[in-house]
Structure formats: C-alpha cells, structure tokens
Nucleic acid binder design. Structure first.
Lengths: 237, 237
DNA sequence: CGCGGGGTTGAACATTCTCAAGAACTGTGG
DNA sequence: CCACAGTTCTTGAGAATGTTCAACCCCGCG
C-alpha cells in the first residue's frame, strides 16, 4: 500500500486548489482555475515515511517532484564514500533537476527527513505544460538561477573560508524577519546534517559551537535552538 | 573607443547568421532566419582586452552575455578576500545568471582571460524573446540545469574529497573523444586558476602533480600539456 | 530500563596552507 | 637573437587547521 493519492484535482471539491494542494502555489499560482485543473490531471501524490528514499542516484530520472508536506534532504555520494547534504527541501520546493530537460539519471539521493508528501509530475507531462504555459518556464528558470546562485556561493564558501567562518555565515543566514529581535534561531537540521552540508564533521561542528559559546557569541539552548548574542562579532571572525 | 559592434544582424549580408555570429547557435539554432533577424536587432557585441572586466560583483545586472570569441573566467570573492574561480566560459557559453529573471546585482566577476568578443542582450529585450519563443527558455533551462549539476558536483567534490582526488578527477574530465587515445590533454587554464577552481593553492597543485609524475601516473610536458599514463590508477587514488 | 542515535570531548594524526626563495617561462624591446 | 622584466611555477620547512577514532554522555522511546 505504498501509494496514496491525496493531491488529486478531485479532492475537496470546493474548487480551491490553493488549499487542496497548497504547495504547488509557488510554481503555478499565476494560472487560472481551469488551467490548474489541467495541471492537476497529471499530478500524482505519494506519502513517504521518515527515512524513506524518494529516489536514488543513478536511477533514471523522469519526473518533477514537489514537496507538499514534510521535509526532504538531498545528498550526494562522493567517490570517497562520504555523503554530502546538498540541499533541504521544504513544502513548495521542488527537485528533479536536469531530469526535466534531458533523459538522464539522478545525481543525488532524495530522502524524507520526516514523514512527507510529495507531488510528482512526469517529464512527458511537464514538457507539454512548459510549452503551453511559457510562464511556468520562467518560474522554474527563476528558481533554478536562485539555486545555482546558492550552490556557487556554497562552493566558494567551502573552497575558501575556514569551517569557523562557514558556520558563522550559516548561523547568520538563519536569522529572518521574525527572529531578528529575539536572535533566537532554530537550526533547520540536525548538527550531523549541518556538518555534512557545510563540508565538515559533527565533531568539528560541536567544537566550534562550543568555542562560540565560550566566547560569548552564542548560547546553545537544547537540540536545535540557538541564541545569537553578538552577530556582528560572530561574522567578524 | 571601447565599443565595437561586430555581431550586428547587418554584417555579412548573406543571411547566414550561423556564420555571422556563430556562437549564438547553441541558444538560437532552432529558429528561422526571420526570427534570428529579430533577435539580432537586440544583440550588441563588444570586444574586451585580456584582463579586462566584463562586469564586477555588486554591479547591477541586466543583460545576458554570450561569449563569441575568446575566453572568460568568472570568479567570486569570499569574505576572507580569497577569490575562487567559479567557471570558465568558452565561445557559445553564456552568463548573466539570475540577472535575467529578477532585478539584481552580479555575484561574481567576469574577466576576459584573453582578448575576447562578447555578445550582449539586455534583460528587457530577452524577457520579450523568452515569452515569444518558449523554446529559448527550454534551451536556457537545460543549460542552467547542466550548470547547476556541475556546481553541486563541484561543491561535493571540494567538501568531501582530498585535493589529490579532486585534481585526478579534473584531469580525467579533460579527456575527450579526440585525445582519448593519445591521453595527451591540454589544461584549459593556468595552474594558478586551476588551483583556485579546485579550492586549493598553486603550491599544492604543483606538489600533487609532481607526486603523480613520480608515481608514473602522468607526465608533464611544458606549460599546459599533460600526458595521462595511467588513468585508472590515477582515479583509484 | 536498556537501546540507539545524536551529540560531545580528548588526543594523535594527516592534510593542506603559509611564507619565502628560487627557477622557468612569456613576451617585449633592443 | 638575446637580455630583461614580469609572471607563473616549483620547492622547502614550519605551522595551522581539521579529521579520525574511541570513549562517553544524554535523551527519547519502545
């Protein structure tokens, strides 16, 4: 009983697709209800348990995946066998990569971090939609360029900054409008995953955070909670 | 006398745009002559001397740049002040990044490695073309996804492999159909730039290459020429 | 209450960087 | 064709940075 179609265009029946499948919004929110209906025809949704793989590297890749609920982590396996977390997908984020535009295989693994719900559109279907609604391409293009931007920044950061700095930069990026005053941030992932993302080890993460705390720059409050006491000084390191 | 319009739709007059501006081909080769004419209306070409900057980080970004002749390197400046080579553009390659889809500033520097000729299309003009010719979006999307792919691979490589391995992987990638038998490869950039690209220093590059040579895996022949004597062993390191 | 995963800590070790000096190459002008 | 200046590249030695491995802790959960 692996499949669970919860994101069909038939559900609800109130015609409000925004509510029926809230996370398609970032890509499709500029379309009319009729157009959404057409898109919903080809959307399939499936649930994944925590730890379950949505796809593996080397598998043929032929669909666009959109996170509807939960959280997904994508990681690569290096020659050395070490894995590196490439990106974290939250509701509304999508993946499928170049899968969409050329026949290919996945380069990374996609794994549900918690129980999740993923919407899926097959490449064949998407191709048609893209030609029909050029604005969708623009949306995806924008997302891709944003992601490329992030990835290159990440590369530069790992290539040129020391671990300490990378961690500090990451913490600073966790500050949003909501918590700017509190300076209380919630880490978006475990320290282990964070280490993998930042190209270091859990041990080093732990040590550096402790150093920051001893220097009075931050305060660690439980599992994933942190208080940034002196952001300026933190970034000055 | 900085500007030099050599890529106008008026030149040649033989109607063969493929020859008149060969490097627009990768993006526009599926269009008819009439459509090319329209595009050429908004294309502007300029020459750059070796070492000259096409644009700087932080400058407002509002155009697509296509390398017509020469070579361009893009690099980022990290907080630490170190620079990292992000990508090398050869004729036919383009850049302009997210510049195209949101008003923004450049994140990197673009510098002519040798005397070069760059075609330029302003964002405003391109937006129109994209909506008019959805297939162009697909071309750009494909290129973006390919680039994203490369960038994430690069991140993982730098984050998880040791320098030795990164260099070996890079050398192996330099093998194309042409030189697969010879195993004689031409480095696409200086050792200095290569070091920057691979997230290491020229000193370490030099040492590792010497080690490879002493181990009988490669042979260094002058400036940028290398002979891969035992690729399998090289990648096994 | 024991199990297991994440997290922390310590000490030894490996890798890579830094700085400094010298060698080789490139292109330029005589 | 050669000498020179300016790079780029190489080599060495010491120092910094981060990893590894092993032990331990802590907490949530069956």
């Amino acid at each position: 009983m692996a499949e669970n179609f919860s994101c069909s265009h038939k559900n609800g029946g109130d015609g409000n697709h925004g509510r029926a499948c809230v996370t398609l919004v970032p890509i499709f929110n500029h379309l009319t209800t009729e157009q959404m209906d057409e898109i919903m025809e080809v959307v399939r949704t499936r649930s994944y348990k925590k730890g379950e793989l949505i796809y593996r590297a080397e598998e043929p890749s032929n669909a666009l995946y959109i996170v509807n609920r939960g959280q997904v982590k994508m990681y690569r396996l290096a020659e050395s066998g070490k894995e590196q977390l490439v990106r974290l997908l939250s509701p509304g984020d999508f993946t499928g990569e170049l899968a969409l535009f050329k026949q290919s295989v996945h380069e990374a693994y996609a794994e549900a971090v918690v129980d999740s719900e993923i919407c899926q559109i097959r490449s064949d279907d998407l191709q048609g939609l893209l030609v029909q609604y050029p604005t969708i391409s623009l949306k995806i293009l924008t997302e891709f360029s944003r992601r490329l931007e992030t990835s290159e920044k990440q590369t530069t950061s790992i290539a040129t900054e020391k671990v300490e700095t990378r961690i500090a930069l990451f913490l600073a990026e966790c500050v949003t409008e909501e918590n700017v005053n509190e300076a209380a941030i919630e880490l978006p992932m475990s320290r282990k995953d964070l280490a993998s993302y930042l190209g270091t080890t859990p041990e080093t993460m732990s040590r550096k955070l402790t150093e920051f705390e001893e220097a009075g720059l931050i305060e660690q409050g439980g599992q994933r909670k942190l208080y940034l006491l002196d952001i300026d000084q933190l970034l000055f390191i």
